[in-house]
Structure formats: structure tokens, C-alpha cells
Design a protein around this nucleic acid. Sequence first.
DNA 1: ATGCTAAACGGACTGCGGTCCGGTTAATAT
DNA 2: ATATTAACCGGACCGCAGTCCGTTTAGCAT
Lengths: 225, 225
Amino acid sequence: MSGVSLIPLRPGARPGTGPGARPGTGPDARPGAVPLGESERSDAARNRELLLRAAREFIEECGVDGLTMGTLAQRAGVGKGTVFRRFGSRAGLMMTLLSDAEAGFQGRFMFGPPPLGPGAPPLERLVAFGVERIAWVLEFGELARAADVSAYNRFDVPAAVLWHRHLEMLLREAGVTADPWLMATSLSATLEPERLLHAVRVHGIAPERLAESWRELVSRVVGKA
Amino acid sequence: MSGVSLIPLRPGARPGTGPGARPGTGPDARPGAVPLGESERSDAARNRELLLRAAREFIEECGVDGLTMGTLAQRAGVGKGTVFRRFGSRAGLMMTLLSDAEAGFQGRFMFGPPPLGPGAPPLERLVAFGVERIAWVLEFGELARAADVSAYNRFDVPAAVLWHRHLEMLLREAGVTADPWLMATSLSATLEPERLLHAVRVHGIAPERLAESWRELVSRVVGKA
DNA sequence: ATGCTAAACGGACTGCGGTCCGGTTAATAT
DNA sequence: ATATTAACCGGACCGCAGTCCGTTTAGCAT
């Protein structure tokens, strides 16, 4: 429970107010991006912590799918409106819950030691990225699935954009000249939580096999098969 | 409005009764797979046609997202329960609406003329499959998106299993020995309606560019770059 | 025609995500 | 201490997907 995302998962800058908050209605109105540095009222901060703690407890007991916004509000002893003001939506809540894990992953592939971080050859970094991501999804995928907002803009969440750019950059460095943007899109698709979880849970695919297939795929894509 | 799926989109054999119908409760109970050949009561058939017609009209006017089950029932002049008994769920309704287009696509890649159908070299068939699929998604993707049931088993819908097997077979024929099953999974992921639609609608990617990238991808995967 | 029964019908009902708005309170200025 | 006010609070409310169950009816046997 510490650290803030290097790149936030959600567009809104503040950890509390999500994009779901109504724009421009009533005194609560606040533009999506706050100038940063604005502080939170003490009761708001207290309730946020209360809610996050309650949410984690509840998920521990009943699983991600068992958590409803109403129950959470009740359990935390606050009104339902408060939950939605803080997190914008159920997906927003899940993103907040994920933000530490996400920040850790981002930190490792951007600044960490090779081969995941900078310093290794691009192909090795690509392989490491996928392998690490697969492990990450196996650990946090349930939450990640619940954090997927249903609209298209699921791919425009800052974290997703960051992974995509990272993949695209590595592809370019590896010498892929044929539409690296779309190639990165295809690679991202391969690493989607829903599919990965399905392969493991329903078809009993071993994680190592996923990793090996990823290695094969990226090797062929960069032409070093 | 003719023709029935070669491989149904939904597990239930009958065009009406979906998997969502409660199993074993009350007189309506009917096992998922009916022995086939069982006939439909005339009022049921009439209402099904009524509902499908109304649904198509409504979608024409208000778009897929504008269609709610309650409104549809009202518009067709039947009860809400009837809509759900017929189609099981909103996703089931959408699948039914898609079934003609889906059957057409299936027929073309399984029995149609090369290069999509049998007769062409596997790589060419792979390329054709993706290109055709991209065009299909651009036409029916909105409906396909709404037909995606939210659970994992979205990938276990018969039609999805069929595409997957088709891709896997072509990969094997093309000489891919490294885990064709997972490779087919990655390729399927690339062709998902949600991502394709996002690329086109949000990022303004031209369909030809999608097709070209697909060609590049499969070429590299089969090692004929 | 009449009676029987399984299937179909329909609308009230539940639970959930998400919104609204009148009342409350923390922070600041005086 | 007191006044001011912007932010926050809470729970009633809405629309929608999906379920339940008492009622009706098509199809068939007599």
C-alpha cells in the first residue's frame, strides 16, 4: 500500500476522482486533469483508505466477482455515492486496487535490470516482457479482467498505451520495419488477461508453455527464428 | 433470413433455446442439446420471427447498443420472459442475429473457392482467412461485440472453436511445429472484433493496412518471410 | 366437440452499476 | 469564536439484464 503509478492506469490525475464523475454539474464538478498538488480533504482521505481496505478484505474472502459496489459501501460504512465519487466506476476501483502491482511492473520494464529493463538486446527484452507479463497476469489477472472498462477506450488507458509503445519501440530496435504499431497491437492481444487466463484455467496450459510460445512468436516476428 | 449455421454459434442445438435457460426447473426445462428434429410450437415460432424482425428494425434505427431486452419485448408485443426464453440472454440474441453472416463465412473458408477455401497453399489460405475476417468484422463487428458473452467461455463458443481449429490446421499444414495450438490462439487474438474496431474507429487505421499487417504476421509466423 | 397436458406466455420481481441532489462538514478567512 | 463556502456525504432513485411463477394455449387423443 504505497507508491503511486509512474503512469497512472486511469486518465484522471488524482487517485480519487475518476473520469466517470459527471463533468460540470453541481459543486462537485472537477475537470478530469487536476493541476496536481491539490490536496484531499481529511474525511475524503479517510474514506478512501477505508474503502480500499474493505475492498481488499472482501476480495480475499469472496473473490473479485463477489464484490459489489453496494456491499462495499455498506461494509465500509459509507454511502454508495461516496464509492462512486472516489473511484468513478467498478472498473476504476479495480484499477486503483491494481495500481501498485502495475507500477511495479512498469518500473521493472522501464528502469529495472536487464533483460527486462534497458541494456539487453531488443529481442531478449521482448521475450522477457512477455514472460514477465504472463506471470503478472497469472497473479493479478482476475483483478485486471474486472478493471477492463467495457468500452473501446479500454485500449486507451494510459498503462495499456505505455505497454504498447514499449513493444513498438522494441520491435523497431529489433529491426522490424513492417508496421511496428500494428505488430505491437497483435503482440498485446496475445498477452490479454482474458485469453491467457482462459488458456490456463480452462485448457490447463502450463505457464511455461505460454512463455515458450511467446518466445517463439516474437522471435519469428522479428525474423530471428 | 435463411440458412442455418453449419456450426452453431451457440452451444444449444435449437435456434431458440439458449444455454441461459435454467436447467431443470419447472415444466419449461429442456436439456441444452435437443435430439434434433423436435418441432416448435406455432406461437413460439411466430414470436421468434416477430422478435428477430423487431430487433433488426430497432438496431437499424438506434444501433446495437440502443437495443434493450425490455424495449424489444415491448416493441414486439410480447413479454420480457419470452425474449429470454427464446434467446437465453442478450448475447444469445445477438448471436442469433449474426448466425447468417457467420454461416456464410464458415461456408466460404471451409468449402468455398481458393484461396480462402481448400485448394490453395496453407499460407495463402491463412492470409485470405485474416483478410476476409477483417472485412467481416468491419461489417458485423458491432453485433459481434454485443454477442460476446462476458465469461471466459466466450472462446468456447462453437464458432470460435472452429476458427481456432481451422487456423491451427493451416499452421500445421504450413509446417509450423512449435505449439500450433497457442500460435492459433495468438492469431485469433489479433483478429478480435474489439481490437480491430478500435484500430479503425479510434486510430483511423485503414482496413488495407490491417490486412497487410496480418499478411506480414502470418508470413513471419510460418517462417516464409 | 371436449378434455388433457406440456409447453409457452408475460409481467412482477431481484440485484447490480451508476446518478442525483439536499444535507453536512472540513478548511479557511475574519 | 464565527461565518463562509467548496468539497464531501449518503441514500433514494433509475435503467437494465436476468429470474420466477401463476396463467394461458397449442397440439393431440378421444
